[in-house]
Structures are given as structure tokens and as C-alpha cells.
Design a protein around this nucleic acid. Structure first.
Lengths: 209, 209
DNA sequence: TTAAAATCGATTATCGATAATCGAAAATCG
DNA sequence: CGATTTTCGATTATCGATAATCGATTTTAA
């Protein structure tokens, strides 16, 4: 067994992170250190350390002596994140084009799944596969810093809010817009892929041009 | 006194952060919790919490039972950060152009200072004012998320390494390239400003096109 | 009766002690 | 003498206790 063990604090962080991401903890919800410690059968200190991680990751906010809450993401911040995402993915497409040229089978598989979900107006499935599509591109970009920033900006719960604004009736059109990106990447055309990617994010996420 | 007090852990974090940023702690240097606790006359727990912040900010790295070191930034990561920075600032210029139209006095003041430093081949002064110039733009973009990501990517110690690679003989030319951005912003021309900004970062930070 | 002061319980924040781990040095073995 | 095992000191990690703070409730004073 050569796996590196992780500290209790890291394990608590990852559990709390999972609960925040999957909606178990709602935006605004209070996280009580001693309750979490009791539930997880540890002491307060590792829980506090876990919360420091989450705070630095901007997923929770803490006020001295008042405790920690899951951070509420405003509409403004949603818009800001779409703006940032659009340029991160522009760069991602540029960098990934060489690697993905002629190698888009996985992208196609995800696109097929989200197009299927779009036709069935199934947001959750759409979201999962759309995100997987984008993740594949960002991973192919081979820029670790870019990928970790992208991951911190692109959270599925927030994407579902964006999808709700796009609306079910526009889901097929939104999914379709990804095909331009996919075909450009298949041809290794980073310039077209990056421009199309940025356009589709700006257009469908409702950004003013 | 209406100022919000901060916890000891936050204060320790900010002190350690300052020491990392100003080079007091060198890359690779070991941070010993109990020593820091003794120096700052606190107990170990707030120091550990402070280190969790710094770890999440990717400024230090920690292994269970082995301690914490200031993270060494590889050449690879430097390049990655320039790539990311180039698109963040592309977006920053686009968003800032409206606000900065006809309002570039502060930008000009900083540009004058870094040009003066470029002619004297003074890296440190160049760096400070070049960074201030960029910060003014990124603040004018009025996108908080973009700004905080930019801040986490753009660290002065790392910029000095980039300047060293640009070389003293190219400093004036590098500084001059900012003038195109400045004049475009003065005219409110976000498209030209963003394109020029991205070009100058890519060109002078040595990115393959 | 209303406003101000005091109290209280829940929670956060830190303390200092103890447990756990690691790597280097010392001891032991063949 | 080299290899292996054991010991030890420094440090990390967690524990459980105590101090500090907050907001709600109760008590007191006018």
C-alpha cells in the first residue's frame, strides 16, 4: 500500500467540499465546527483547518466569532465567472488544438450525450456532459495552472443556474454551438476553436458584447 | 474604532504571506510551526490554520508529518502563468476600456515611471510600476473575480524572474509596447487595447505563438 | 411600560498537553 | 565492516480544556 495518507484536516475538507458541491449544504447555510467534529468523530482543530482551506477556495466565508457559512454566489458573480471562463477557454482551445487534432473521439462521445440530453430538456445530464466536454479540452491544453483556475471557476451547481437562464428551449441550439468548436479542434484549428468557444460562452451565458 | 478585528490565524497568514512575497522566506524554505508560534507568541493551532490558507493559495506545499515548505515555482509554471495572464489581461482591457476612456492620467503616471526605470535598467523599480500600471487596468475592469484571479497569478517575485529573461537591453522596448495599450484605452478602444496587451505579454514573456 | 444592563448558552478561538510520525544517529547482528 | 534494527529528538497532528465573543433572553431601573 504505497498511497500517501492524508491528514484528518484534508479528509474533512474533501468531505465538506463534496457536500457543498453536491448541494447538501445550501448557499448561506451555517457550518458548525463542533457539530461537524462530533459527526466525523474528530476534534475541533482539524475541522477549523478544513474550513480554512474552503475559505481560501472562496467556497465559504467566515467572520471572527460568528462562524462559517457556505458562500452565496450573486448573479453578478455568475456573470463575472462567465466572462472569466470565456477567456480561460479561449486559451484552452488554442493550446489544446494541436493535441486534439484528429483525436476528438472522447469529445464526440460527450457531445453526443449532451445533445441527447438537450433534446430531452434534461438539464442535469446536459450539465454533466457539457462540463465533461469542456474539461477534456482544458485538460488537453496541458497548462496545469490554467486547468486549476478553470476548475475553481466552473462549478456545476453554478452552471445549472446558467442553464436555467439559457432555458430549455435554447438547449439544443446551445449544444449545437459546441459543434463548431469540436470540428475546428478536429482539424487542429486553434484559432477558430478558441474564437467559437469564446463566442458561444458570451452569447449563451448572456454576456453583453 | 469600527474596524473588523481579524483572528490570530488571519494575522499570522498575512505576516507569512508578506514574508513569502518579499523574499524573506525563500522558495523551498521550511516553515516550522512551533518556531513561528513561539516567535509570534501564539500557539501552534493558529499557525497551522494560517498555513492551510497559504497552502490553498498554492504558495506553500505541505506533506503529512513532513512539514511545510515555500513552494518552488518551476520555469514551466512561469510560462503557464504568463499564458494565463495574457488572456486575463485581454479581458481586463476589454472591460476597462469604457471606464478608462479619457481617464488615463494615473496610467500615464505609472508608465512614465516604468519608462524612466527602463532607461536606467532598474528592474525592481520597473517591476513595481509596470505591475501598478497593469493593476490599474485590472481594477478598472470592475470584475472582482477576474481581479482576484489575476492577483493570484501575478506575483512580483515571479515577474522579476520574467524581467531577467527579457533582459535589461530589451526593457525600453518592452515598456514602449505598453504605450499602444495606453493610447487605445485613452480612446476607449477595448479591442485594440486587449489585442495589444495580449501580444505584448506573449511576445516579451517568451511564449511560443 | 420602555430602555438599559446583566446574564446565559451556543459557538468560535486559542491554549497547552499528548499522540503520531519521520529521519538521523546509535546500537546490534552476522 | 556493512547491513539491519532500535532509539531518540524534532516536528507534525490532534486532543480536550478553557478563554473569548456574540446574540437572545431575562432582569433591573426609570
Amino acid at each position: 500500500m504505497a498511497l500517501k495518507r492524508s491528514s484528518t484536516a484534508v479528509q474533512v475538507k474533501e468531505l465538506l467540499l463534496e457536500r457543498i458541491l453536491n448541494g447538501t449544504y445550501k448557499p448561506g447555510e451555517r457550518l458548525i465546527e463542533l457539530q461537524i467534529a462530533e459527526e466525523l468523530e474528530t476534534s475541533q482543530a482539524p475541522v477549523r483547518e478544513a474550513l480554512r482551506y474552503l475559505e481560501a477556495m472562496r467556497l465559504v466565508e467566515t467572520e471572527p466569532y460568528k462562524g462559517t457559512r457556505v458562500r452565496v454566489v450573486t448573479e453578478r458573480e455568475l456573470e463575472e465567472s462567465s466572462q472569466v471562463r470565456s477567456v480561460l477557454e479561449q486559451l484552452g482551445c488554442e493550446l489544446a488544438a494541436v493535441k486534439l487534432k484528429g483525436n476528438c473521439a472522447e469529445l464526440r462521445a460527450e457531445a453526443e450525450k449532451f445533445m441527447h440530453a438537450a433534446r430531452k430538456k434534461d438539464f442535469a445530464t446536459y450539465s454533466a456532459h457539457d462540463t465533461a466536454f469542456h474539461r477534456l479540452i482544458m485538460q488537453a491544453a496541458d497548462n496545469q495552472l490554467l486547468f486549476s483556475i478553470w476548475e475553481s471557476v466552473v462549478l456545476e451547481s453554478r452552471f445549472l443556474r446558467i442553464l436555467a437562464k439559457i432555458g430549455q428551449e435554447n438547449l439544443v441550439e446551445f449544444g449545437d454551438a459546441h459543434m463548431v468548436v469540436l470540428e475546428a479542434l478536429e482539424k487542429g484549428d486553434g484559432k477558430t476553436a478558441s474564437k467559437s468557444m469564446r463566442n458561444l460562452i458570451c452569447k449563451f451565458h448572456g454576456l453583453k458584447s
